[in-house]
């Protein structure tokens, strides 16, 4: 094998390996029960202006819970596991979705809440 072929193969392998290493989303949701459920997501305000800070809390059932918060637009800081502080910068105007996923040994459940940023 000459050097040229070898280099091309290395580049090809590098490319394919990188593509195949992408994370897969685990969206498998469990049926809510007393062992694991989100009763509600409650925001201190649902209509806010840019840079205004609100708190969003997940009320849940179950033990040994892990919380995972995500949003399509805006920033969040976890204050404790079940509550996040949410705010939005000028490029986050609109109706934004905040999702909370809660998991334990019984599975994963999720819920969303909409926050309108003006």
């Amino acid at each position: 094998m000459d050097k040229k072929t070898f280099l091309l193969i290395v580049i090809l392998i590098f490319s394919l390996a990188s593509i195949s290493c992408k994370k897969e989303n685990n969206n498998t949701n469990t049926k809510p029960s007393d062992n694991l459920a989100i009763d509600s997501l409650v925001a201190s305000k649902r209509n806010i202006i840019v840079w205004e800070e609100i708190y969003i809390t997940a009320y849940t059932k179950g033990q040994h819970l892990n919380f995972h918060w995500s949003t399509n637009h805006g920033s969040m800081q976890s204050t404790d596991s079940s509550t996040v502080k949410y705010w939005a910068c000028p490029s986050c105007l609109g109706l934004n979705t905040v999702e909370c996923k809660v998991s334990n040994e019984f599975g994963t459940v999720s819920d969303t809440i909409m926050i309108n940023v003006k």
């Binding site: 990188s18 593509i19 919380f67 800081q77 976890s78």
Partner: peptide, 19 residues
Amino acid sequence: RIPVGAFNEEINGATVPIS
């Protein structure tokens, strides 16, 4: 330009903004 890298980074369970 292929998005092979980290796009789900989080801090204490809260995902960081896209930017």
